[in-house]
């Protein structure tokens, strides 16, 4: 079904953790190809290896077996090329930096000129609707606003791959649905086609956002099923209320139950 060369090729990957004597198989023989510009969700119960898979793709950890190739490079090469923008469940903003300076952080580390990074960070804050909060400090913002800053920061250097580990997990349901819609408009409006790997616990969230939902199961962590979400884009509240949406939610739920 893949027509273009994959952005990310995951080939028979396993990950075994050795924690105080006993070996834990976090991932067992996982294979998956992800197309450029694709929005992929990883869903499954706690401990099924979603975060582990994301961390292996992002070179925050290395597989025990198998290989991962990112744009025909090793994950390490891709990381050194700054191909990854990461958003965690907690916003992980630096307390001592203003919102503007937090978004500028990756640009500073990457050695961009001050004028350039200022303009770029401002544009990113505008994208997430926080252009008036550049001089505020993280603790002055609500949880949802903080997470938007963290998304702006991840997008600041225009990475080709966005890795998001339960980014909306700590938000209330109303804020969460608004953030999902915002994420889609940011992603659709990004200048390059950004590939997104999105880890979540929420079935409707996965269905609403994704091109494909990867259903995982635990002990050992593996891919149970991949559900293609053929809902038209752009998606909005009408999408959420369509019969097809409910069918897909049911399909994902059934896959999870079988796991």
């Amino acid at each position: 079904m893949m027509t273009t060369a994959p952005m990310i090729a995951i080939d028979h990957v396993s990950k075994i953790y050795n924690s105080n004597g006993s070996a834990v198989t976090a991932l067992h023989d996982v294979s998956l190809d992800i197309a450029p510009g694709e929005f992929i969700s990883l869903i499954g119960p706690s401990g099924c290896g979603k975060s582990t898979l994301m961390r292996l793709i992002g070179d925050l950890d290395q597989p025990s077996n198998g290989t991962i190739m990112v744009r025909n490079k090793t994950p390490e090469r891709a990381r050194l090329d700054r191909d990854y923008g990461i958003v965690f469940q907690a916003p992980v903003l630096y307390d001592w930096r203003s919102v503007q300076k937090n978004v500028e952080l990756p640009l500073e580390v990457m050695g961009r000129a001050p004028a350039d990074r200022h303009a770029r960070a401002h544009a990113m804050l505008k994208l997430v609707g926080l252009q008036d909060f550049g001089d505020s400090y993280p603790w002055q913002l609500s949880g949802g606003m903080q997470q938007r800053v963290s998304i702006a920061r991840a997008l600041a250097f225009a990475p080709s791959i966005l890795l998001m580990d339960e980014p909306f997990g700590a938000l209330d349901e109303i804020t969460r649905e608004r953030m999902q819609a915002e994420l889609l408009s940011i992603w659709g409006g990004a200048e390059t086609d950004t590939t997104v790997i999105f880890v979540t616990h929420s079935i409707p969230e996965a269905v609403f956002l994704s091109d494909r939902v990867v259903v995982m199961s635990p002990r050992p962590g593996r891919i149970e099923n991949v559900v293609t979400i053929n809902l038209p884009r752009p998606r909005d509240i009408v999408t959420r209320e369509s019969p097809r949406f409910f069918e897909l939610v049911t399909e994902v739920r059934e896959s999870l139950r079988e796991s």
Binding site: G58, L60, R79, D81, R82, I86, A90, V92, L105
Partner: peptide, 12 residues
Amino acid sequence: HPDAFQLMRSYA
């Protein structure tokens, strides 16, 4: 927090 270091790692 470890994530703050992971962030730096992801920026190389």
